[in-house]
């Protein structure tokens, strides 16, 4: 099965979304970027994403809460957590709640792309250019 990966990216740092959206577009993802967790959750309620990538530390609502929400609504959706400061207790809590993977700041776009490809694979979705992630790509 070949289709576009539907990805929701949530981080309260605007630059993260600005840089990662084109990076993920290149591996055949369709990325929706959010800086506000409330708005992101509202969007999750409307649409089933394949993958949700969310920062843990945010105002108003944290990544774990987003994870719980996604799990409740869309059990199939893979959730990837971004942590600013790796803390074991948080990781353990998230693992228990069915998080797909973690990525710690600072990371390279490729690091996330690899995790996303893994997630896609676990979903049984083959992506457009699985081998092209390290090659410069024409827009």
């Amino acid at each position: 099965m070949q289709k576009t990966l539907e990805v929701l990216l949530l981080d309260d740092e605007p630059i993260v979304g600005r840089r990662l959206k084109p990076a993920l577009d290149k591996i055949g993802c369709h990325v929706e970027v959010f800086e506000n967790p409330k708005q992101a959750v509202a969007r999750i309620n409307e649409k089933e994403f394949d993958i949700v990538v969310t920062d843990i530390r945010m105002e108003e609502m944290n990544g774990i809460q987003v994870l719980e929400h996604v799990q409740a609504k869309w059990p199939r959706t893979r959730v990837i957590l971004i942590t600013g400061y790796a803390k074991m207790d948080l990781a353990r809590e998230a693992m228990g709640k069915g998080v797909f993977d973690f990525i710690a700041k600072p990371f390279r776009p490729d690091d996330l792309r690899q995790i996303i490809l893994n997630a896609a694979e676990s979903l049984g979705i083959s992506v457009d250019k699985p081998s092209g992630i390290t090659e410069p790509v024409e827009p």
Binding site: V16, R19, A23, K105, F107, P109, P136
Partner: peptide, 23 residues
């Protein structure tokens, strides 16, 4: 935590700048 955010922003931005430099 406070430091990892700007570092991440810098790393992502610089990585993408290299990756898409021509485009």
């Amino acid at each position: 935590h406070e430091l990892n955010n700007p570092l991440n922003n810098t790393l992502l931005t610089a990585s993408m700048l290299t990756e898409d430099y021509e485009a």
